[in-house]
Design a protein around this nucleic acid. Structure first.
Lengths: 334, 334
DNA sequence: TTGTATGCGTTATCAT
DNA sequence: ATGATAACGCATACAA
């Protein structure tokens, strides 16, 4: 078969266990070390991850589980892959389709494959799943939550300042004298979008502006369904500005407005969320709340690696990263 | 530790090897079978994939390697995951960033993890990588290519009728009396886009229409760079129709035309490629060449599973699936 | 068909 | 610091 530590040991004139120790970073006499290194080089030896796994019950892999394969999750995952691959971890991908039953299956699936840890993009995860996740932690399997916390589950979390970012975004509109500001929100059942909506309410309240319920489009502008958006402009006093709290809502709003022959920013001002490639193609350039994807991925990876090394000193960490406001030309000063 | 086949064997009053045989679908006496099943149920036994892997040198996983995490690849991957998970295979994801050096690394990485097979989305893969891929095949590791073949490498391939689909698309424009038809193409270095372009040329030639070189925008309308598109309409005789050969090109073209205040289809007719969710949001509904994602994924999975079962009877298979033309309202009859 | 015994490649325990 | 040896959980050659 392949080259094993026995072959290396023989070639180097030491015992297999010494080779093993060398490979795992234990102390080895200088002379032996160089001989082993030479043998490894000469023979082209590579560790057998399965055999190692059989002892360790871990396969040097990280489960990355998300509610769907959207561009946001995949962007983070992509960056995660680069960092973790360097640390010799592979990614085991899972899509739980926003279904907690499927999530349980994926968690089982991942554990049966002896993953070393879990990165979970949480979406509407409730108490029923918490015990299952707790089992991961109990088995010393780190769980890092991204974007959204899970009520009742204490673990590391990497998220952004959703409420604050939204506050600033809406404030920006208010300071340019907009008072009738509508919101096109992502799925309001998700905590992250509730937070962003909360930022909106806070801003409106802070500046003593009243909010009409009909200004809040709660399910976003999903595939083809921009009727809610149109209703906005059938109001006797239509909004002069829109705050879109997610990428899809942003793009959907742009097209919907276009469809209605409303020009940005002349007829309606817009501030959106998330800068992905397709957004560059929109005219005028949009003013956007931009999430630091690279930084998110980096933070997740660092935190995960730290836990994998057994360092739980600062557990649980909750890292909140700052978003950035990209100034485009989609806001008109009234 | 966990429950092993030894525990099951003891509980069932048989030898461990009998349990193993049962688990692997070999003949077992009826009485023993039911006792084993009962024991498994009672003990909550689950196979240890690592131990199994140590014998088989395979970890019940499939490497899915792609040049980037675009929506096309992820859509297929998503569907692949569902089918393969049912067959107890996990997906090991890799992004080779359109870089053949990285691809080699990913191939090594996957093999070190003892994947059972490989699904490869090929993009501009040349002869230098072929020997490495051939090694996979030589080790009985099936390699299924998706969308694009690799010159000099013989293996299973699942693709769509790119040239034919493009021919029909352009023909559709021609039959509605368009003669000046431009193309916004995906990266022309990729075989798949060359094929689509070929379909265009074929159609034009078939109908005795001449093609001006300046009608061919070869790099697509990438992030923000729609200058090439604008140049089209600075021509003394601008095109009356555009054929966009990829999703990005399609969306980019829509926005670019909008930017230029050209209306679809009144000013310019458009036929694009690929129907993803965001496209639903475009007005008017576009006429599109639609790829059968579900069918592609299904075919890949079936073919892969067949190979994994050791059935190479019809190797190599080249399955070409039919695209569909979705009739929208983006073509004007002149 | 079933049981026994051995090996897959590594790590860990125990001496030395 | 090093070497011999026993696991880890399963599959299989061989014998029965």
């Amino acid at each position: 078969m392949a080259i094993t530590i026995y072959d290396v040991a023989e070639h180097a004139g030491v015992a297999p266990s010494t080779v093993s120790r060398y490979l795992n970073g234990y102390g080895v006499r200088k002379k032996n070390r160089s001989r082993i290194e030479q043998a490894i080089e000469a023979l082209g030896f590579k560790q057998n991850l399965i055999a190692k796994g059989l002892k360790r019950s871990r396969l040097m892999s990280i489960a990355v589980i998300m509610p769907n394969y959207s561009i946001f999750f995949m962007t983070i995952t992509d960056m995660l892959e680069r960092t973790l691959a360097q640390a010799n971890y592979s990614l085991l991908l899972g899509n739980y389709e926003d279904d907690l039953t499927v999530l349980q299956q994926k968690l089982d699936f991942a554990e049966e494959r002896f993953v070393n840890g879990l990165v979970l993009f949480a979406s509407r995860i409730d108490a029923q799943t918490v015990p299952r996740l707790q089992q991961y932690l109990d088995k010393q399997l780190p769980v890092i939550l991204v974007e959204e916390e899970i009520p009742g589950f204490t673990t590391d979390l990497v998220s952004v300042d959703n409420a604050h970012a939204s506050f600033r975004a809406v404030e920006k509109l208010i300071l340019t004298h907009h008072t009738r500001i509508a919101v096109v929100s992502g799925d309001i059942r998700r905590h992250v979008f509730q937070e962003r909506l909360r930022g909106y309410y806070n801003a409106m309240e802070t500046y003593n502006l009243s909010v009409k319920p009909e200004w809040i489009i709660a399910r976003g502008v999903d595939a083809g369904d921009y009727a809610p958006l149109h209703k906005l402009f059938d109001l006797p006093q239509p909004p002069t500005a829109i705050f879109a709290t997610t990428y899809h809502a942003t793009v959907g709003t742009v097209i919907g407005l276009h469809q209605r022959h409303l020009k940005i920013p002349d007829d309606v001002s817009l501030i959106g969320f998330d800068k992905f490639d397709l957004i560059d193609v929109i005219e005028p350039p949009l003013t956007l709340v931009s999430q630091p994807f690279e930084k998110i991925a980096q933070t997740v990876a660092e935190l995960l690696l730290k836990r994998l090394h057994g360092d739980y000193a600062d557990f649980p960490q909750s890292v909140t990263l700052n978003t950035q406001m990209l100034m485009g030309e989609s806001i008109k000063t009234l």
